[in-house]
Design a protein around this nucleic acid. Structure first.
Length: 263
DNA sequence: CTAGATGTTAAGGT
DNA sequence: CACCTTAACATCTA
């Protein structure tokens, strides 16, 4: 479920493993869709020989600066992840679509079972973010800016949180988590929230994302909703039966007792 | 076997 | 025009 916290963990993982290493060779497989129009030969040729010089995350996108110039863009779709390992003559990990070889047999695999997502080379990160119409990164968003984002929105608060042009990084799971923590009904009209409610959602947004990153996106705190996302489970706070509905075309879980529709 | 799944986006609607 | 909703994409699992 690569959303902002997951991608942040991938970034830290790459920083701790493959950073500053030089790419000796590049293997691309079953990546036509991920590469869009770019040929894999051209892509590989431009990556070969470069070093991974630094990383930057914006929303769900990870940008890896390359020595010389340009950046490798990685988007993980629903099933993407990174895997760093030392080759011992075996096969690459399952669903590897992009494989970077470094010195002494070390490798970084970009794996993606369903193949939704994107890999590309981009010149300038800020230009890319602008051209793509991405909103500010969810963790960079101060309260005042968050209020502006909500202003005039007619849709459900959950849909706005998930809208990458409004703010970047939150997906289905964390949108539910944030609204659960804030005690706000996911279908509440975003533009109609009162100032105190806006503030609670903003606080919850930062709190939830930070805690998820601190937990390395596993072993979530007990009070989180994530571990209880399946039919018939109970609210970790009050024991009420969680409800499942559909908002913005996505499965939505919430506690009918804590998350009232309020302004 | 069928339905649904955590992301994005094109196309259509208001 | 700005915003909102839905379906489709590929592949796997419950």
């Amino acid at each position: 479920m690569p959303e902002l916290p997951d991608v942040q963990v991938f970034k830290e993982y790459l920083d701790a493993t493959a950073l500053h290493k030089r790419v000796r060779s590049v293997h691309v497989a079953r990546a036509e869709r991920l590469l869009r129009k770019v040929s894999r030969r051209a892509f590989a040729a431009r990556l070969r020989g470069r070093s991974l010089a630094g990383t930057r995350r914006h929303g769900k996108f990870l940008f890896v600066a390359l020595s010389g110039d340009g950046h490798l863009l990685l988007h993980f779709g629903m099933t993407g992840r990174l895997h760093y390992y030392k080759d011992k003559g075996g096969k690459a990990p399952e669903h590897t679509r992009l494989l970077l070889d470094f010195a002494r047999g070390y490798r970084l695999a970009y794996r993606n079972m369903r193949g939704l997502g994107r890999i590309a080379l981009v010149k300038d990160v800020d230009d890319y973010i602008r051209d793509q119409g991405l909103g500010p990164d969810a963790l960079d968003l101060r309260l005042g800016a968050f209020r502006k984002v909500l202003k005039g929105r007619r849709g459900a608060i959950k849909s706005v949180l998930m809208n990458q042009s409004a703010l970047a990084g939150i997906g289905n799971v964390y949108a539910d988590e944030i609204l659960f923590a804030a005690g706000v009904h996911p279908a509440a009209r975003a533009g109609r929230l009162g100032r105190e409610t806006q503030k609670s959602v903003h606080r919850a947004l930062r709190g939830v994302l930070r805690k998820a990153i601190a937990a390395r996106v596993e072993n979530f705190p007990r009070e989180f909703l994530v571990p209880h996302r399946s039919r018939g489970e109970r609210c970790p706070r009050c024991g009420a039966k969680l409800r499942k509905t559909r908002i913005g075309g996505r499965a939505t879980f919430y506690c009918p007792r804590h998350q009232q529709r309020r302004g």
